[in-house]
Design a protein around this nucleic acid. Structure first.
Lengths: 206, 206
DNA sequence: CGCAAAAACCGTACTGGGTATGATTTTGTA
DNA sequence: TACAAAATCATACCCAGTACGGTTTTTGCG
């Protein structure tokens, strides 16, 4: 009868417990120094079960970090250019700061930043976002050759850089408020740069 | 007495043999289906020796694919803007086509394209190129905040896209000449886009 | 040449991520 | 209560990569 289940809730709970345990152990001893066996044991499950919930050790940390730029482009209001829609989207994100508890987020960022394997995983995620955005842009502007792909590459790269900068500041101990304020300005700057080109606003240097 | 050695030559030879053997086996049976043990055996060395020459299975294919954009920026002639120097650099690469034997190159590209692990490795390489370029740009235009990093991200992303497009055409059976001709045009287009912005030359679509 | 030191090489055994198998327990429902 | 589906598990396995300790090859030099 689809009771919308006790079962489901228990699964979600177990999943949560595994992820939390993993993050805690990683933060304590470092990503490489913790084995999945230890995580499983500490979370009270078997290794096999852990891998039934998470497809890899990386995914214990990187689960659900993927944003969906392509959807932003597809669902943009009539008459708004793709780039404008994306600018609005990130303006919104920057303005309302970060919703998740800062503590956990910060721990996660620190763990990621300290492990090459995880950083690589992040850039993998970015690459797949880029491909999806490229597909959405190609749909929005057909017969434009490589242009949509070039646009997608530039946009994704810029967004990634903004995120990196933001998180670096948090890791360095900057307050959330200040980091958010700086991010707001940089979102505008970055999209201006995208729209008007790198030769705009250089001035001093040749 | 630093005979500039027999030793050196033999090492280079062994290294070459390992890489060639690996590429051949990967092309025949697929990247995942070949174990490093098999490669080592086929190349007549021990697994340990293979890993003394190559730090990982991936590197058997991805060795030396890294370009050095940062150097292009650092060594640019007096008075030339960084972006102009990079444009010249890639114009040159496109014009003189590909120097390595097309056969081997094509095999390598096919193998890479067919393996997620290798694709991930490529994007890792791109990321480190991006960081180096960012450092060079920051040196070229100090006190510009995030701008150099944003530029580096955009430039690297665009170049990566051009490379991907080029190789995709080769894999699809396009002739080298035609692929090179298209690449030449796209280099110009891509750098125009970088310099003048995405809002330039859109026209049809809003 | 002969010989010692360095460097390359190798066999073996190990670690750790991830998977296959097949058995066992838990849970929703009749 | 009974039963089928789903979740969990112990175990054994595969493969990339490393540690260890020993053997062979190369080289510089007397």
């Amino acid at each position: 009868m689809m009771m919308a289940g006790l079962r489901e809730r228990k699964k979600e709970q177990t999943r949560q417990r595994i992820a939390e345990t993993a993050l805690r152990l990683f933060a304590e001893h470092g990503y490489d120094a913790v084995t999945v066996n230890e995580i499983a044991e500490a979370a009270g499950v078997a290794k096999v079960t852990l891998f039934a919930y998470f497809p890899s050790k990386e995914s214990l940390v990187l689960d659900q970090i993927k944003d969906d730029y392509a959807a932003v482009v597809r669902n943009r209001p009539e008459g708004m250019p793709p780039l404008g829609a994306l600018r609005e989207h990130f303006r919104g994100i920057a303005r309302r700061g970060v919703e998740a508890p800062v503590e956990t987020l910060l721990t996660r960022v620190q763990v990621i930043a300290s492990s090459p394997a995880l950083l690589s995983g992040v850039s993998q995620t970015n690459m797949s976002e880029r491909e999806e955005l490229a597909a959405a842009l190609e749909a929005a502007m057909p017969d434009a050759g490589v242009v949509p792909r070039l646009m997608a590459a530039q946009i994704t790269a810029v967004i990634t850089t903004l995120q990196e900068t933001f998180f670096q500041r948090l890791v360095k101990g900057e307050s959330l408020e200040k980091a958010v304020r700086l991010l707001e300005d940089e979102v505008e700057l970055a999209f201006d740069l995208l729209e008007r080109g790198l030769s705009w606003q250089e001035g001093t240097d040749s």
